[in-house]
Design a binder for these strands. Structure first.
Lengths: 336, 336
DNA sequence: CTGCAAAATGTAACCGATTTCATTTTTTAA
DNA sequence: TTAAAAAATGAAATCGGTTACATTTTGCAG
């Protein structure tokens, strides 16, 4: 692989001149410039950006820790990140952690070992072990989607509580009073926040909260299906089910159909995220739309600002949500 | 950020000794070793891996060009890659190209500028421009899923023709003779290969190929829906529709339902890929399962072998497929 | 034509690790 | 006790760029 010295020799100039020709062409004479450019072509020079990054101490790489790229919502977030990163001259190092602490550690270490400038974490979990944090103070991290809101790091999130409340109110508005909820993992703050919003709405409507109407889930189709099966067989079946994400809702809908329940006549189903599939299931799913791509773009922008010292104290960005009413929710059937 | 010299000073040894302590502990005396380890702790040393990679000339980074991470099939492939890469000590640099040539170029250049050791391309397109190829001969690339089969690069693919033939035969076996096909982009070799398989099966069954039964698509839900709408209104409607991927099939199913067509009584629908959603739509989708994660794992393994010079000539790995018969395909309804 | 400022170019240090080769210290055998 | 061999350690080169500083060349005014 030809290096800058080869170019310099071939052009009969010094390496400094070559470097200048490529970085600040106006600083070299036109004659030299063309001589150098010709030499670059002649020897097939490609700069070793590893060397550049090493010397500059700036990698222009950003690590993104995503629980799973198989989650359609995250896929959209990532697209947004990629876009913003490209514009700002950064590359995304995507870590599909799959909930595996080792993988998470491995990629997080890229920041502490100068392989990346910063990190975006999409889970509510600090990937840096204590020793690192104590040694170096805060690390360049932005926390998005599912956040730890301790004011330490910049945060990009949704008002999940308000969104869940809005959805629950929508269901209440349709006349439902027995509204089940299929949760995410209890360890996830998302689950907690959305549960709070659900309770808020019930309280406001003077509907007693019933622990029995909560069903466990983990944001997968399978979990939704399983919850749906359980709910189908219930003696005093709820008339509406609010699922904490669309995958879960789609899984549950499938179970209801197999139990010969009509949606929404027998049971209303609502999701969260507005993934592409939601509009193409039968019936189309009522859900909460999140600006997923915008989450990604904002996270990247924020992180780059942080890296450039443009941020004093950790900002908290709350993204807007939108209630998307489709056909999976409706009034209680009179035929019951 | 503490560097190796700080450690050396703190421990009262040379940098060489520090390096050896960390790389080959058995080469230093136990006394020195503990002294150095203590110093490492004391100064909070984290090796600058950028420097290491620069010097060694090996980045242990692999670039992956994926058309879109929003495609659920690719999401699975990526998971497999990440897994294999982690095991082999490599990191994945994921480029969500979104069909954008600039992004593709940007990431491909990471290989030619020493920022990554190799590249995996999931599209049938050589991302390196001619100049690079001419200068350096073949670049370390593996082509997977949608491949350019010119024998230049290692390839990991499916026998798409055979798979499409198998699916078409399944439909013919159910009694269908008017079988529509919703294609992918015509520019994609996948489209071509699957179309060939479709024709193969028709020919074997002495069914005339009808150009009118081909519908354009681009692997999205929207395209499937659109094709489905068109097909619904056809005078001489086909009794089965073979879609070139699951997203398309799910989109088409939605259109059929809205046109009050029963699946599979009025029309059978088949997909390709066996994404997770396929089992959770109504009715569950008949499709071709591809070992997506295995695609990813194999691609990475192959690329690493290539990098280590363990490969003489470009191998061609054909992955197995499986016909998954669910409920979206059936015999023609007698009620017609 | 001379002198000086500005422009162009070159020399060499530097980034942080690894590694070769040289040197010192320790161990072993005579 | 001493010489030779082995082990431990250190000094310095190296990877490929960038850049501060030094030097040379050019341009222009007097």
């Amino acid at each position: 692989m030809a290096n800058i010295r080869d170019v310099a020799d071939s052009a009969g100039v010094s390496v400094a001149t070559v470097s200048r020709t490529l970085q600040q062409p106006e600083r070299v004479s036109p004659k030299t410039r063309s001589k150098v450019m010709a030499a670059v072509e002649a020897v097939g020079y490609r700069p070793n950006l590893m060397a550049v990054k090493f010397r500059s101490g700036k990698t222009h790489n950003l690590v993104v820790l995503v629980p799973t790229v198989a989650n359609v919502f995250f896929a959209r977030v990532i697209s947004g990140m990629q876009e913003a990163a490209a514009e700002l001259g950064y590359s995304i190092l995507l870590a599909n952690t799959l909930g595996n602490a080792d993988i998470e550690q491995h990629y997080a270490k890229m920041v502490t070992t100068s392989q990346a400038d910063g990190l975006i974490q999409l889970r509510a979990h600090n990937p840096f072990d204590a020793s690192v944090i104590n040694d170096n103070g805060l690390l360049p991290m932005v926390n998005a989607c599912e956040v730890i809101d301790d004011g330490q790091y910049p945060v990009v999130s949704l008002d999940n509580r308000a969104a869940a409340k809005a959805m629950t109110e929508h269901l209440i508005g349709l006349g439902h009073t027995r509204i089940a909820m299929v949760k995410g993992p209890d360890s996830s703050p998302l689950t907690q926040e959305r549960l709070c919003g659900y309770k808020d709405a019930l309280r406001d409507a003077d509907i007693a909260f019933d622990e029995q109407l909560l069903f466990p889930g983990d944001f997968t189709l399978q979990a939704g299906y399983h919850a749906g099966e359980t709910i189908s067989t219930l003696a005093n079946r709820p008339t509406a089910v609010f699922c904490e994400n669309d995958e879960t809702a789609i899984g549950a809908m499938q179970a209801f159909k197999q139990a010969n329940l009509r949606i929404p006549d027998d049971i209303s189903v609502a999701g969260f995220d507005d993934i592409a599939f939601s509009a193409f299931v039968d019936p189309p799913l009522t859900t909460i739309a999140q600006p997923a791509e915008e989450f990604g773009r904002t996270s990247v922008t924020l992180l780059v600002d942080l890296l450039n010292g443009k941020i004093r104290k950790a900002p908290k960005v709350i993204m807007p949500f939108e209630l998307i009413v489709r056909e999976s929710t409706g009034t209680i059937s009179t035929r019951e």
